[in-house]
């Protein structure tokens, strides 16, 4: 069974292909503007490497966030279009669910002063880097750690696996176990930026 994982929610855009739960191809590029066509090109590259075709895909798993609003929408929109046209299963997993460990605080870039964070034992939230450091003494991981390192260069940073690869593996495992697949809905964690219209 071939499963595809897509993660466009972070600073790195990743597409990964798994066969029976084993990663057989994985491509990552730094997120830039116009990454939409890059995302679909990465899908092609993975398929070529795995000597497979789009029609072979049994399921898609997209990383739903939190992260760049625009980025995660790109991944979900592309996944919705692929899943409908290929008539294959589609699900979404958030980054905390995929990457959570009991020893590490996960910190993801939000392009704001505060970052998306999950401290072990706590719900995901948005915090300023200094607040994270004061509340959590242990290791940190994720694409938002640079802001923490600027304040505490000695803080241990744990490596993280690629969420797209984990997503492709997890959907395979969930299908094998006949678990219900969660919908591919965005996990924003932050309310919309509301800009009131300019004064008349």
């Amino acid at each position: 069974m071939l499963t595809l994982g897509i993660d466009s929610s972070g600073l790195l855009l990743t597409v990964a292909l798994c066969r029976t739960g084993e990663v057989v191809a994985s491509r990552s590029v730094e997120q830039r503007r116009q990454q939409g066509e890059v995302l679909l090109a990465l899908v092609d590259e993975c398929l070529v490497q795995a000597k497979s075709e789009l029609g072979d895909l049994a399921a898609l798993a997209v990383v739903t966030g939190p992260g760049s609003f625009t980025g995660l929408r790109l991944g979900i929109a592309a996944s919705l279009g692929l899943a409908r046209s290929l008539n294959c299963a589609l699900t979404g997993y958030d980054r905390f669910t995929l990457l959570r460990t009991p020893e590490t605080a996960l910190v993801f870039e939000s392009l704001r002063a505060d970052v998306f964070v999950q401290i072990p034992g706590h719900e995901p939230q948005m915090l300023l880097p200094a607040d994270i450091l004061s509340r959590w003494p242990g290791a940190v991981a994720g694409d938002g750690v640079a802001k923490l390192m600027a304040l505490d260069p000695a803080r241990p940073v744990a490596p993280l696996p690629l969420a797209a690869e984990l997503a492709a593996q997890k959907v395979y495992a969930d299908l094998q176990a006949k678990r219900e697949l969660p919908p591919a809905t965005p996990y924003y964690l932050r309310a919309p930026d509301v800009t009131f219209p300019a004064a008349l």
Partner: peptide, 13 residues
């Protein structure tokens, strides 16, 4: 971006 990515993926698939 939503309409373009969705449409492109739909066409690709």
């Amino acid at each position: 971006l939503v309409g373009v990515l969705y449409g492109r993926a739909l066409a690709k698939g």
